[in-house]
């Protein structure tokens, strides 16, 4: 195993250039170093002007997502040694506007996320004196997979549909909507359906399936979307044949 590896890092400094350029750095490559360690080495020892996001370094915060050798990855969970002898090409997440170097604007995702109300909606809260909302392990299992989403947006970077049509609400927002739709304590499914059943909602998805492959938490957003398509179709048929409800 080589003791050093070359990083080719995308740079975009709007005050200097109008296109992405690449700077190359040589960094140590011990077997326990991830791509983020390499970037931190560059930032601390070689070039302090490099801009990128990171926080927890343990696959929880979802802020260090970047494109590594063409694939969307959490850089805190992507080992440099796996790319030996290199070079390792590090670029910003695809499909998002680049603010600087490896930092992208996530405002579009944040606005879409709020639209699907990713929290438990209750029509009426029960009084505290009645205790907590109990749930069986089977009821929790229904949504638990989708609750693993860490909002890292790798699925948006992997989705060609989002790249072609930025109005598409996107994989993570739909998976998180399903996380609450499938929660037996929630009563907000009808409110979410207004957003999800639009053309830019679930029907924008053509099931490429790349979101599920890219997800570092095995959330399976593609599965969530297809399941919701089935739900929306059944609800649509119900409203057609039973317009006054059943």
């Amino acid at each position: 195993m080589p003791d050093r590896i070359r990083l080719q890092v995308a740079r975009y400094r709007p005050e200097l250039e109008s296109e992405v350029t690449f700077d190359e750095y040589e960094v140590p490559c011990p077997k326990d170093w991830v791509v983020l360690d390499g970037l931190n080495h560059v930032k601390d020892r070689i070039d302090g002007t490099l801009a990128y996001r990171w926080s927890c370094r343990m696959g929880i915060c979802g802020s260090c997502g970047m494109t590594v050798n063409g694939e969307p990855k959490l850089t805190c969970a992507t080992f440099l040694a796996d790319y030996a002898p290199g070079p390792v090409r590090v670029e910003p997440l695809r499909n998002f506007p680049v603010i600087r170097d490896l930092v992208v604007d996530i405002g579009d995702f944040m606005r879409k996320l709020v639209k699907v109300k990713p929290w438990i909606v209750r029509q009426a809260e029960k009084p505290l004196s009645e205790g907590e909302y109990l749930q069986t392990p089977e009821q929790m299992e229904e949504y638990q997979q989708f609750s693993m989403c860490i909002n890292c947006m790798l699925c948006y970077a992997a989705c060609p549909i989002y790249g072609l049509d930025p109005k598409f609400i996107g994989p993570a927002a739909i998976a998180l909507a399903q996380r609450y739709n499938l929660d037996n304590r929630d009563e907000g499914a009808a409110e979410r359906m207004e957003v999800l059943s639009e053309h830019e909602g679930i029907w924008g998805c053509t099931f490429v399936g790349e979101c599920t492959k890219a997800c570092p938490k095995n959330v399976d957003p593609a599965g969530a979307i297809q399941r919701y398509k089935l739900t929306a179709a059944v609800e649509s048929m119900k409203s057609f044949f039973l317009p006054r409800g059943a």
Binding site: Y12, P14, S18, E19, V20, R94, N95, F96, P97, V98, I99, D105, I106, G107, D108, M110, P160, G163, L164
Partner: peptide, 20 residues
Amino acid sequence: HVDAAYHPRWLRPHVSTYWW
């Protein structure tokens, strides 16, 4: 706000016709 949909200095990604 600063994260508005358009910002003159942000680099917009371009998806190639041959992305597939």
